[in-house]
Structure formats: C-alpha cells, structure tokens
Nucleic acid binder design. Structure first.
Length: 498
RNA sequence: GCCCCCAUCGUCUAGAGGCCCAGGACGCCACCCUUUCAAGGUGGAGAUCAGGGGUUCGAAUCCCCUUGGGGGCACCA
C-alpha cells in the first residue's frame, strides 16, 4: 500500500445522497488506482439530526455500490476497524478537546460569550447595511477578568478560532491555484459549541490530520471553506493534505442537486431497480471522462483509467434518462443467474403489493429471461412487463379488447378462431413454432392482417398492448391458461360476465 | 452584499494553437428489422465552441474585459 490515504466523511443526518455516493466513488477510484487506503469516517457531531437509521442507510448504500472501505465502521451503531479509530467523531471528543486546549493556550482561539440573539442582531444589521455577514469580534479581546466575570454570571461560551490577516493560497488538484483573502472568511469562526461539542470545520481538520489523509477529495461546495481548514492545519502544526474539489451534481435548473428538485437518495434508485454497475458507471462519468470514447465501463476498468486531471470543473446536470440507458446496457450484460437473483426481490415485492398472486421461482424466471432482458430499463419494470404471467384471475375490459382497426364482433370472431387453433395444438409440446404458422394461415384465410389478430390475442391473454413477442408469451402462459383467458375474453365480448 | 469557482450541441462530454467550418454518447426525428413493445442497425436535425477585445501566420484551445450560471459566507455538514 502506498501512503495515499483518502476518505469519505458522510454525516448521518440523512440517507445516502447521490452526491455523497459520487464523492465516495471518486475517492475509492483514486485509492484503487494508486494502491492507497480508502477510509470511511462518520461525522456525527450534529447530534440532534444524526441517527443510527441514517448511518445504516449510508453504510448499506456504500456496500451495495461495491465501495468497501479499508478502515472505518463495520456496522451501523457498532464497532469499527483500522489503526486510526475510532471512526465516529462523537467517539473522538477528547481529541478535539485536546486540540482546542492547545489553541486556547496559545491564544489562537478564545471563548466567545455572545448570545444567539446578539449574533442574530449583528447579522441583521450587516444585511441592512448591505455588508457581508461576519463575526464582529465583540469577544476577541476580552481580558481574563472580563471572561471570568462572564463565566461567574453563568454565561456559556463557544470557542472561536482567530482568523489571521493574509491570503491563503493552495494548489487544488482539479482547479489549479486558488487564493482567498482571510478577510473574506466571515471573521473568527466557531469551532466548539456552547455545549462543548465541536463543529465540522474543526473536526474535519483534526481528523484528517490524525488519520493521515493525504488527499481531500470532496465537493466544490467546500472550496470556499478550504482556507479555514488550511488555517487550522497550520495552527495545529499539521501538514496540509492535497485538496481536490469535484464539480457539483446539479438539478435540471443547474442549482446544487437537492431532494426538493431531484431524487437524491441512493436507496430510492436501488428500490427502483437500478443496478450498481450502472450507477457506478454513470456517476463516474458525471464530472470525469476517460478522455476517450469508451463509456460502458466497470469499476475496475474505470479505476485503471482514473485520474484527477480529467475531472471536469463545471457542474454537471444529473440526467436520469442517460442513467436508465446505461442501466439497460448493464442489465443486458448480466449473466442469467445473476439477473435472476437480482430480479427476485422485485417480483417478491410485486407479490407483496398484490399486483401478482405468487412469487415465481428462479426456474420460472429463467425461462422468461430471453424475452424480458432487452425490455428492462430497470429491474423494477419487471412487474409491468410480465406480471400477467403470475396473475390468477386476469380480467380485461370489453372496451380494451378490440385492436384499432377491429370492431368488437370481428374481435370476438378472431379470438374464437384463434382459440380453435390453440385447442388444436398438441398439449404436450406447445411451442411457439407450432403456434405461429397456423395463426398466420388463419389470418390469411379470413382476410385479416396478422398483426390485428395477434394484437387481439395479445390483449386478451395479457391485458396489455405492449408485451414480449406473442408466441413466446403464449408458451410461457401455457396452453390451458391461454385457452381460459381466450374463453373469458370471448365471453366478455359476447356480453357475458364469464 | 462580499468572496471564490465555472462557461463546447437540450444533457453528459472529447478537445491541452494548426488533425475541428468541432468528434462521441443520451434524448429527439426518420428509415431498416418487425405481430406489439423493446433491443439492434443506418441516417438526420442539433454547438457561429456565452459575447467582445487582444496575442499569434493561425485560437474552442493562451491573456483581458463583459455577461451569465453556480457555490460559500451558521453554536449544519
């Protein structure tokens, strides 16, 4: 292993977000490409919003994507592994406390007694004066006596980091040189809350240093905050990692992708039947490219080609249609047993939802695989596609039965004639090859267009106008059920209720 | 308001001075295949490379300005 160490540091305050997954993927790819270590650290210092359920969703989602980590939590709410643990920030409080004490001792940070109301008033005044919001420094120069008296009053203090004047510059691995004047950082910022819990900008630096992170690869939304982190790295005497800021994933209106405007939870994509290969492939190509025209690529193939130089700088709109296309590509590439395994939970769900009457066996799924493979944009589409195979009591409305060019009477005649053809076939073999010729002959004999006859049969036995090839469908249904469904349709058209 | 980042077909992108009056993919439109739906094949429409100045024999590629878009500025992460 090289000394390249990268991490994904999600906050368990929501389900695994597509943006977090993409950042995790890029970090994992970078680690794989360079033989480095990929670390997962949970940033759970927002105790009020963090939950074990979200933690589980994040861990499960990352595992599902195939993005395993070399160091980090093992299970939600459980223990972890790796030489730099623990990997949950709330279990690392003493480290932040020590770092805080060090900063306080050197007066690089100070206690601030300003109340939320005072700060709010400051911000309101600044906004009214059309000035950028920043901490005014009311507590920056308090004497020891003044601090003591405030403490005596029982007032709680946060800890603020002193932002020194100057320009902070760094070499971003995707954007090149970036320079920001510390005067634009918003003043001395809070690193520890009044209740003693540390804040993100502080913990991220303490931990990235403690965990020996060599490359911080994260979203562009952190670019402006990077000077704060660099200031902290320096104040604490830690070496600075290399920073790489990835372009944001955007809503169709080009704003930062959000739950309000897009589907952002990975679990939702999983539930709809997207396969990991497609998601990984799609996400990798969102903001990065091989530099060639290759595009259907596995994680390993991408990792072999991955580099930060080809990372795009501008944000990328999330295009679900392209994801669906890629998903279809990957579904077609899965081998039979794999596809069956992945389809099973979706068929099970169809059953549970009551849309089909039983869950088909693996063997049953295997027999229909050739006719559905090319027709599945997602695994979740399987019910719509062939659910009619496992419905006991299919009923089709009379209005739906006639093909475009046929009237009800013709349709009834056509179905009756078709029924005779089916009835005349051998009950033992019942193959598509022995069904099609006589049906075509029938259509020709009666002067019907074969397509119309086929459509009438299709709707009668499946209830749908779009299905896999008709004769394969009839075979899958079986002779007896085809006869029964044709009978019922004929009865329906005859005015009976069957 | 201030700071930072960004800017090639509707979308994802190739392009690191001449190979580009800009290539690929998704989507869209035709046609082929075809019993429907897909898949697949072929072809097409679609970007004066945001605009304007430079630099250069030559710029999508380098520089500047403008415009536009985005992000950040919490006792959220």
């Amino acid at each position: 292993m090289s000394d390249i160490r990268v991490r994904i540091a999600p906050s368990p305050t929501g389900p695994l977000h597509i943006g977090t997954a993409r950042t995790a993927l890029f970090n994992a790819l970078f680690a794989r490409r360079h033989g480095g270590t990929f670390i997962l650290r949970l940033e759970d210092t927002d105790v009020a919003r963090s939950t074990t359920a979200f933690e589980a969703d994040i861990l499960d989602g990352l595992h599902w994507l195939g993005l395993g980590w070399n160091e980090g939590p093992n299970v939600a709410g459980g223990d972890d592994h790796g030489p730099y643990g623990p990997y949950r920030q709330m279990q690392r409080l003493e480290r932040y406390a020590a770092a805080t004490a060090a900063l306080l001792a050197r007066d690089l940070a100070y206690p601030c007694f300003c109340t939320p109301d005072e700060l709010e008033a400051d911000r309101t005044a600044q906004e009214a004066a059309r000035r950028p919001p920043r901490y005014v420094g009311r507590c920056a120069a308090l004497t020891a006596d003044e601090r003591a008296s405030r403490v005596a009053e029982g007032r709680l203090a946060v800890t603020r980091f002193r932002v020194p004047p100057g320009v902070i510059g760094f070499e971003d691995a995707v954007r090149g040189r970036v320079e920001i004047d510390t005067a634009n950082l918003g003043g001395d910022f809070v690193i520890v809350r009044a209740d003693g819990t540390p804040l993100y900008h502080f913990t991220v630096v303490v931990d990235d240093a403690a965990m020996r992170i060599s490359h911080v690869i994260r979203g562009e939304d952190h670019l402006s905050n990077t000077p704060k982190h660099i200031l902290l790295f320096r104040a604490l005497g830690y070496p600075e990692p290399v920073f790489a800021h990835l372009p944001l994933i955007l809503n169709p209106d080009r704003t930062k992708m959000s739950k309000r405007k897009s589907q952002t939870a990975i679990s939702d994509y999983i539930a709809q039947g997207f396969v990991r290969e497609a998601l990984v492939n799609y996400l990798a190509l969102l903001g990065w490219s091989t530099g060639t025209e290759e595009e259907i690529l596995s994680f390993d193939e991408i990792a072999a080609r991955f580099d930060l130089d080809h990372v795009q700088k501008g944000g990328a709109v999330f295009d679900r249609e392209r994801l669906e296309w890629l998903n279809g590509q990957w579904i077609r590439r899965l081998d039979d047993e794999d596809l069956i395994t992945r389809l099973e939970p979706f068929l099970e769900a169809e059953h549970v939802a009551g849309r089909i009457d039983r869950t088909p066996t693996g063997d049953e799924i295997r027999t229909v695989l050739p006719m559905i493979r090319e027709r599945l944009p997602t695994l979740g589409a399987v019910g719509e596609l062939i659910g009619f195979l496992w419905v006991d009591d299919l009923r089709v409305e009379a209005d739906a039965l006639p093909p475009r060019r046929w009237d009800p009477a013709t349709t009834r005649d056509g179905l009756a004639a078709a029924r005779d053809v089916v009835a005349g076939t051998s009950p033992v073999t019942f193959e598509a090859d022995e069904l099609e010729p006589p049906m075509r002959a029938l259509a020709e004999a009666r002067g019907w267009k074969a397509g119309d006859l086929f459509m009438a049969i299709r709707v009668a036995v499946t209830g749908r106008t779009a299905t896999p090839p008709l004769f394969d469908t009839l075979v899958a249904l079986g002779r007896e059920r085809v006869l029964a469904r044709l009978d019922r349709a004929i009865a329906t058209l005859s005015g009976g209720a069957a």
